[in-house]
Design a protein around this nucleic acid. Sequence first.
DNA 1: AAATATATCAACCGCTATAGC
DNA 2: TGCTATAGCGGTTGATATATT
Length: 268
Amino acid sequence: MVKAQHAEEKMPLRKGAWTPEEDKKLTAYIKRYGIWNWSQMPKPAGLARSGKSCRLRWMNYLRPDIKRGNFSKEEEETILKCHEELGNRWSAIAAMLPGRTDNEIKNYWHTNLKKRFRNNWSTSSTTVSLKVQNWDVEANQNDSSGINLLHCVAASKVSNLDGSHPMSPQLSTADLSSSSTDPAAEIDRNQTIEENVCSSGTFGELQSFWEQPFSLEDLCMVETDPAEFTAQTTKTCFPEPIYPFISYEDVHHDLWFNLPNHEEMHGM
DNA sequence: AAATATATCAACCGCTATAGC
DNA sequence: TGCTATAGCGGTTGATATATT
């Protein structure tokens, strides 16, 4: 982790429900600059929110790969079985359910499955095979102790050591720190954010999107005191290799796995 | 139709782990 | 080695929606 030069600066932070405008700003900002430091992002993004709040909003709601709607039977089964094995480790359970967030699963557990789990957990032995992201996971529920993981085979060349959701569009801060470009400094110098939130469906379109300047003025209804922002006019894009890390638009996870890793990017 | 109870879920809070200084 | 900043996790809360009386 990189120690920030300046922590979240003292300004009244908004709490409570997010407005569509706030969502738009956060989405637009992340599209343009990626996720580089949650604590420092809100200000240049034009948001009077804590970094923590922004992270939560993105992770639980705005991320493009979020699956909404009712849980399927299979998903329910997976939750029940994983909970038996993992307990309340919601993020670990969420990793088994692509598109579902830990918060969503936690809520679903408390509101739907808890009672059923108490009453209906069968004692039969079953084996389930799951395709989790690019991992093949086979789990067995034995008679007495819930499920055991039998196989967890990475089909991807990029492993995810901490078990977090591979879609998380995050670059380790260590990687960022080694980059010659400090997004914070860059943004301070060139506070240009362009509203261009509308979906860009293809990767090609997305690339062209990144090459466009990003101007805060173009964001509608900026609520922040303009004095807080020294918006300047120079239009600058981050040089490579920042781009790959913000390419979340294509919700197909393979995109991430195809991204060059740090070593590759820096010719190591 | 209104009042009340219950369910749902987004968001907050506090804590821990990690990493830079 | 201790302090600090940050990310992430899980528990909890509170606003809103829905069901019931």
